[in-house]
């Protein structure tokens, strides 16, 4: 009873005093941002859809409406099919690899071992370096002549491997380089997750006779679900829109073999003057990422509730 009256008085005071957030005009504060987004994000997104229904070449003032022509062309374009497969390999491959490596690193570095902080700092360092620069350095390592990796292969008695001029190895290397560079993000998320688990749980279960494996599966894994959800969604988005590393390591080649949708958009627009076609790819990429993000967010959040 007293609670209600107190609340009532509080509201009255707030109204009379006119708390800064009570008046509607406070919304004016977000007007500049909204205008910026409308002009430079929403308008391009809508215009991109409109362009995707045309055969615009990117510079000529004339263009004609061709309906869903570009989308039908995408559906029957073998280059785009291959690109789409690559995009999923980059997205899901990196996500799986980063969870395995990131979680292992977090578990290893969560205990008190010597050099822990130095190890964390070094493993995290590449996250801050531009993927273009990391890619350039890895390019040296994978180069055919005088590359560090081929030096080892030759020393072991093999013959030089053209790492970056075969479709299969190139795609695998791109996944690997992207995952290793950004593994620090997953590691840090899992470390934060591990540190948020109260130690009492482990102590209590130990008294009840649980062994280390039981503690891991019954306490650690369920309570890491929020960290897992965060890390998976971040890595998935990052992998699906991959651009920088591909551009530096292979440029999408050999031929069109290692393109992601992102790199193919740049090529279609600037090299092939198919702006309408490139816009259609952009819309498809946006829909893929939006749908997968929503699906993963829903699935992982529901699981998190069940786990708790």
């Amino acid at each position: 009873m007293t609670g209600t009256t107190k609340a009532a008085i509080r509201t009255k005071v707030r109204r009379r005093a006119g708390a800064p957030f009570a008046a509607r005009r406070i919304n004016l504060l977000y007007l500049p941002a909204i205008l910026l987004f409308l002009g430079f994000t929403i308008y391009p997104l809508v215009n991109g859809f409109i362009l995707s229904l045309s055969n615009w070449n990117g510079y000529s003032p004339s263009r004609s409406f061709i309906g869903l022509g570009n989308y039908f062309r995408l559906a029957s374009d073998p280059v785009f099919h291959n690109t789409l497969i690559n995009t999923f390999i980059y997205g899901f491959g990196s996500t799986i690899l980063q969870q395995v490596l990131g979680l292992s690193l977090a578990l290893a570095l969560d205990r008190a071992i010597r050099g822990r902080n130095v190890a964390r700092a070094i493993i995290y360092l590449p996250v801050l370096v531009s993927p273009v620069v990391m890619g350039t350095m890895y390019y040296l390592l994978f180069s055919y002549d005088n590359g560090g990796l081929n030096d080892i292969v030759v020393a072991l008695g093999g013959s030089k491997i053209a790492w970056l001029s075969q479709a299969g190895t190139s795609v695998a290397i791109i996944v690997l380089v992207n995952s290793v560079q950004f593994v620090g993000i997953s590691m840090v998320i899992y470390l934060a997750g591990l540190q948020s688990i109260p130690t009492v749980y482990y102590e209590a279960s130990q008294l009840d006779g649980a062994d280390a494996w039981q503690q891991f599966t019954q306490i650690t894994v369920p309570l890491l679900r929020p960290a897992f959800a965060t890390s998976v969604v971040l890595n998935l988005i990052g992998g699906l829109k991959l651009f920088d590393v591909i551009q530096v390591l292979t440029g999408g080649g050999p031929g069109y073999a290692t393109n992601s949708v992102s790199t193919l958009i740049g090529k279609a627009y600037f090299d092939n003057q198919s702006a309408g076609y490139a816009s259609a790819m952009g819309i498809v990429l946006f829909i893929i990422i939006a749908v997968l993000t929503l699906i993963f967010n829903t699935v992982l959040n529901r699981r998190r509730l069940e786990g708790l």
Binding site: L51, Y269, A278, I283
Partner: peptide
């Protein structure tokens, strides 16, 4: 609604609006 819409913009991959943004 405005808040969710702004947060939703994080999902837009930069390359997917390359053509319209560049021409703008």
């Amino acid at each position: 609604v405005v808040f969710s819409a702004i947060v939703g913009l994080i999902m837009i991959p930069p390359l997917s609006i390359l053509v319209p943004l560049y021409s703008l």
